[in-house]
Amino acid sequence: MIITNYMRSEHRACDELFADAEKSVIDGDFTKAEEQFLKFSNETLRHFKKEEDELFVVFESITGNSEGPTRVMRFEHEQVRGVIGKMAEAIESRDKDAYLSLAESMMILLQQHNMKEEQMLYAMCDRVIPQDKKEETLKNMDKIEL
């Protein structure tokens, strides 16, 4: 379960960053919110990159399937990236209502995506990838920068 545990804790960390930013927006502190949102989006995008450039690639090479689950996940990442862009605009223009609306869709979107990964994809990775390869993948993911 080392893949699942590693990736899951990243999901949780992003959730917390997200909640911090939202709280600041509600309090009306946009300077702080901007900073926190940037942290959230950087961490999320880095997490996506880890998946797309490392984990998914390993999974695809082992299962020989690049059209299946990983393709769906990549597509969902694009959707999340889209919302991140819109949220950044909302925060820049200090639009509280727009930000909070987007935050709602983002949270629901991201949780749906994360749940699929945690319940299905990571669990499959943990099953099909050999132990030493898993450790190597984790190391490589740690190195990934935005």
């Binding site: 379960m1 699942t4 545990n5 949270m107 629901i108 949780q111 994360n114 749940m115 945690e118 319940q119």
Partner: peptide, 17 residues
């Protein structure tokens, strides 16, 4: 403070791991 269905999604994924 979470909106439906996020609590269900999160609790299931916690429970699972």
């Amino acid at each position: 403070e979470m909106e439906h269905p996020i609590p269900l999604q999160l609790s299931l994924s916690y429970l699972q791991s």
